[in-house]
């Protein structure tokens, strides 16, 4: 079976600015793919190219086995999408917006009620979308994306504007959709969400796909740190550098230190600090989270 998304050497330039550079993407059917990147990294440009809204400068895209360049209409038949901000026709009600989408996507007649219920929009069905909150507009956009029971969902920031309860709800919904075999390709700024949802993660930075990993690989590549809290952090840092030869020691707030050296071990650190009479409140190994891993990969603090 073909992949849900296959993109080969995908590039997009605007004059001298290279927004996306030689990106290769293979998204398997049924998986949730988290697409991460800072603002301006090339996420939205990539998603727009996948949807045929932007023509690549070079490279090929196949969606569900169909070439976007040669047969955009067939390629997008079974794709649901949400691009950047949630938008709807403001003068139409929720029901009318969904009904219009249902007809255009040639979905069955019960689809409006089904998706409105799925996204918790039933009580707003007769409200004009101009009067919806940002979170409910986002729900409406998601409902529109789901109305024709797509095989692939392309979601750009699906949790935008949702409150914490809404985020949990949408996470559950996406998980259940993935459980039904729907492929989900999503970008998000909420890395904790991606961390909990995605089977695979791609990190794009300055238009280049820097890293692509599945859950196991991500676990293996995450760095381990030792974090400690002492009464004299500056003295402790000097001591550990001199006595144990540690080099990667960073100050944290509240008298904390973080040691990133791979050779660092808890026992010798504790011994040296105690022998030097430095008060030790806390000492524990920690694994970097996705956010820290992302920051490290994209050149931020990590």
């Amino acid at each position: 079976m073909t992949n849900a998304i296959s993109a080969h050497r995908l590039s997009k330039s605007y004059g001298k600015v290279k927004a996306v550079r030689n990106v290769d993407l293979e998204v398997r059917r049924g998986e949730i793919y988290g697409f991460l990147g800072r603002n301006g990294a090339g996420k939205t440009t990539t998603i727009r190219m996948l949807l045929g809204l932007i023509r690549p400068s070079s490279g090929e895209i196949a969606i569900l086995g169909e070439s976007i360049r040669e047969n955009r209409v067939a390629a997008l038949k079974k794709v649901g999408f949400l691009v950047e901000s949630a938008t709807a026709y403001p003068n139409l009600t929720v029901r009318e917006n969904l009904e219009m989408q249902r007809r255009l996507m040639e979905a069955p007649s019960g689809a409006v009620e089904r998706t409105a219920k799925l996204l918790g929009l039933e009580e707003y069905a007769d409200r004009k979308s101009v009067h919806l909150s940002l979170g409910n507009k986002q729900r409406l956009s998601l409902a529109r994306a789901l109305i024709h029971s797509p095989e692939l969902l392309l979601l750009d920031e699906p949790a935008n504007g949702l409150d914490p309860a809404g985020i949990v709800e949408i996470r559950g919904l996406l998980k259940s959709l993935a459980g039904e075999g729907i492929t989900i390709f999503m970008s998000s700024h909420i890395l904790a969400e991606v961390d909990q949802l995605a089977d695979r993660i791609g990190i794009i930075h300055e238009g280049i796909l820097k890293e692509e990993l599945d859950r196991t690989e991500l676990g293996e590549r995450r760095r381990l740190y030792i974090e400690l809290r002492v009464d004299r952090p500056d003295r402790a840092a000097i001591l550990l550098k001199e006595r144990l030869g540690l080099k990667d020691i960073a100050r944290l707030g509240g008298n904390g230190l973080r040691i990133g050296d791979e050779k660092a071990e808890c026992a010798p650190i504790a011994r040296e600090l105690v022998m030097a009479g430095i008060g030790l409140d806390r000492l524990l190994p920690v694994e970097e989270n996705l956010e820290e891993h992302f920051m490290r990969m994209t050149g931020g603090r990590g």
Partner: peptide
């Protein structure tokens, strides 16, 4: 102006 052009143009319709 209403931001719906992208939704319209991404539909699988000529």
């Amino acid at each position: 102006t209403e931001g719906t052009a992208k939704n319209m143009l991404a539909l699988p319709i000529p």
